[in-house]
Amino acid sequence: MVSKVTTVAFQGIEAVPVDVQVHVGPGMVAFNVVGLPDKAVGESRERVRAALSASGLALPAKRVTVNLAPADLPKEGSHYDLPIALGVMAAIGAIPAEFLHGYAVLGELGLDGTLAPVAGVLPAAMGASALGKGLICPAASGSEAAWADRDMDILAPRSLIQLANHFKGTQVLSRPVAKLHGNAGPLPDLAEVKGQETARRALEIAAAGGHNLLMTGPPGSGKSMLASRLPSILPPLTPRELLEVSMIASLAGELAEGKLTDRRPFRAPHHSASMAALVGGGLKARPGEVSLA
């Protein structure tokens, strides 16, 4: 039998649909994952095996093949654990396969069957909404996903058992609530600056007109001190800007407890930061300081 579960792969901040196809059939006992998986995805078979065992299920003594389609698109990250586990459960009849057709799924599994938060839930939720699907994600990321669409069906279980019970009807999962992060303390205030009239005037003009600002001067002249106070005279993020900024922060794994913030981002990279840290990139491309700002 072949079961299918929808998940996503990330290209920048775009969520690309990926089909997790699971086949359980006769042959030598094995658990194979194909479709250009990276090391984290390849290791998911051990996490899935342990999580199913902890949930009271055992893999059948058959050949299990998982294909991540399209097969020529590289797959990276641990968020494929949950869709693979649900695909296996549907293939062996542990949950009805038709219940999964209306959802995109992502989440990392612990060996005890609990779900750990993953990066990129917000862009994944927006991608699922564009496909007309709901979203299944870990409970710790549910508040983040709720920002994508107020009418979207979102399930945010804490464990694999909790999700299985929801599908069986023995437990009902409520929709997570979108939350804003409680801003910790006031921002550094421009009113605290004594002197520097020309620099303060330049900051006010740049903030009022939305202009770029380049600061030059010797160390200790007050460039960083002034720059850190620029957000205090900027308005809060608009709803559209909030989602745009938060999608990048989500991919970088910087949304604590799935809560968004309406404060404008301020980054202060060290002068010795590498080019990759500033502009992003790497083997698994991540946003750099320029994008996070």
Rank of each mutant, 00 (worst) to 15 (best):
G142R: 05
E144R: 11
E144M: 11
A146K: 08
W147H: 01
W147G: 03
A148V: 07
D149T: 07
R150H: 10
R150L: 08
D151F: 09
D151V: 07
M152T: 04
I154S: 13
I154N: 11
I154P: 14
L155Y: 05
L155D: 00
A156E: 03
A156R: 05
P157Y: 02
P157L: 02
P157N: 00
P157K: 01
P157V: 03
P157C: 04
R158S: 12
R158T: 01
L160C: 10
L160M: 08
I161A: 11
I161R: 12
Q162L: 11
Q162T: 05
L163T: 00
A164L: 14
N165L: 06
H166N: 01
H166P: 02
H166F: 07
K168F: 11
G169H: 06
T170N: 14
T170E: 15
Q171R: 12
Q171G: 10
Q171N: 12
V172C: 14
L173H: 04
S174R: 13
S174M: 11
R175N: 09
R175Y: 09
P176Q: 10
P176D: 07
P176K: 09
A178C: 14
A178D: 04
K179Q: 15
K179F: 10
K179M: 14
L180Y: 09
L180S: 04
H181T: 11
G182W: 02
G182V: 04
N183G: 12
G185L: 05
P186K: 01
P186W: 03
D189S: 12
L190F: 03
L190K: 04
E192D: 13
E192Y: 08
V193A: 05
K194N: 02
K194D: 02
K194T: 00
G195A: 04
G195V: 00
G195I: 02
G195F: 04
Q196W: 05
Q196C: 10
E197H: 08
E197V: 13
E197W: 07
A199C: 08
A199S: 09
A199P: 06
R200Y: 07
